[in-house]
């Protein structure tokens, strides 16, 4: 008897933090805001990668998105993907959100040094994408790298 109550309670607890939406609902609800940014998504390095199935480098070019004051790069990407019905997958929450894949192209798909990075106005901030706050008119580029950022013009300065 205890178990019969316990199990649904746990399920309710798990799902209480989630908002479940149908695809139409999800894609039709576009965020409003007074500020604008442009988002581009490019995977040119994955196209050039050996025996790659990708043919188009441009996934999204110069898409204008609206955002509110205090929104981050992640919010801009989310809105841009929503607007254009592009798939993306993230893991983590809060400050530690990490983009695993965009448009079915995932990290580690092109070698073990590959993944998604972003630059704002041509500079790679090397911060979490949900930490970096956007300003009005920023240009966000999401770039796929096969070599820890060296092939897209970012020098990796770790160990």
């Amino acid at each position: 008897m205890k178990r019969l109550i316990f199990f649904p309670l746990v399920l309710i607890l798990i799902f209480s933090g989630c908002s479940i939406k149908s695809p139409d609902d999800y894609y039709n609800k576009i965020e409003n805001g007074e500020l604008t940014a442009t988002v581009s998504i490019n995977c040119g390095t994955a196209v050039d990668y050996e025996d790659s199935k990708r043919e188009k480098a441009e996934i999204l070019s110069d898409c204008k998105v609206n955002f509110k004051d205090g929104d981050t790069v992640y919010d801009a990407l989310k809105n841009a993907c929503k607007k254009n019905k592009i798939q993306f997958e993230y893991s983590g929450n809060g400050d530690s959100i990490y983009i695993e894949g965009i448009d079915y192209l995932y990290e580690f798909d092109c070698g073990e040094l590959s993944g998604w990075k972003y630059s704002v106005n041509g500079i790679f901030p090397n911060k979490g994408c949900n930490v970096y706050k956007l300003k009005d008119g920023d240009e966000v580029d999401w770039l796929y790298t096969c070599d820890l950022g060296e092939d897209i013009g970012d020098k990796y300065e770790g160990e």
Binding site: I20, Y26, Y90
Partner: peptide, 15 residues
Amino acid sequence: SHNGATVLFFINDNR
């Protein structure tokens, strides 16, 4: 795993 083209529904921006 949120990969895949046929979306059934969304939970917190994840398909």
